[in-house]
Amino acid sequence: MTAVATLPPRAAASPFGYRLATAFLGLVVAAAVLAPLVAPYEPDAVDFAASLAPMSPENLLGADQSGRDLFSRVLYGARTSLIGPLALLAIASVLGVALGTLAAWHRGWVDAVVSRVTDVMYAFPGLLFVVLIVAVFGNGMTTAVIALGLAYAPTIAKYTRSVALGECAKPYIDAYRVQGMGGWTICVRHLVPNMARSIVGYLVVLFGEGLMSLATLSFLGFGAQPPSSDWGLMVKEGQPAIVQGAFLPVLVPGAAIALVVVSFNVIGVRLADRMGVRGS
């Protein structure tokens, strides 16, 4: 698993771009929450009369082969497309932070075991580790999310370990130890909260990547299953329409994915920059 978050250089994070990205993400979250109120149609309302309809007042962004309104589907799709990455990051960060903290705190063999396991997972390029899990446990959104969560855990563990090692070297940790506080208490009540800021910043960067990975799995048919309006699945289902000259069914969800990921990357760079400044 090589989910290495490669940060773009800082020039990409101009304040204007940052505001634009934040505003856009705000809009997407609002769309996801308010989808039932805003969407003109049900996401899976089939209307063969509107099959592959172009943009029009009836279908703002056109319709797919079954005549389902793309605008409504993209709005509803924002739900799965945002909750999926959120869930996988929740799994990955709980596992990763726990393993990373454990490795940094105990060092020695615990550290060695964690880093060996991490190495083996890193030996699977791209999404292949996830693909293996899906192959064993069957397709579906739940499997995909859990598998990606497992796959991202080593990345977060590695990062947490490095942050935790720096934090453990600070005198306040020793001070608690001298007071006779147990390792568990120090880790949970002091170490982890003090690392939270860096870790959350890192998670923002990973969110965009997680969304891309999950959408890719859905596109391959391993993730969300029909009739879900997950963006990756929408691209997959819209693909046959391309040869008929109808591009909207793929371009609409494709653009949604690209814009959301770009926004997360822009914000992530800015957060990383800020934390870099604070750290030094």
Binding site: A12, M212, A215, V235, K236, G238, Q239, F247, V250, I257
Partner: peptide, 17 residues
């Protein structure tokens, strides 16, 4: 920055279109 933010399958569909 933009190129790394667009998943390959989206690039593929855009190029095909």
């Amino acid at each position: 920055t933009f190129a790394t933010s667009v998943p390959p399958f989206v690039v593929a569909t855009v190029l095909i279109s």
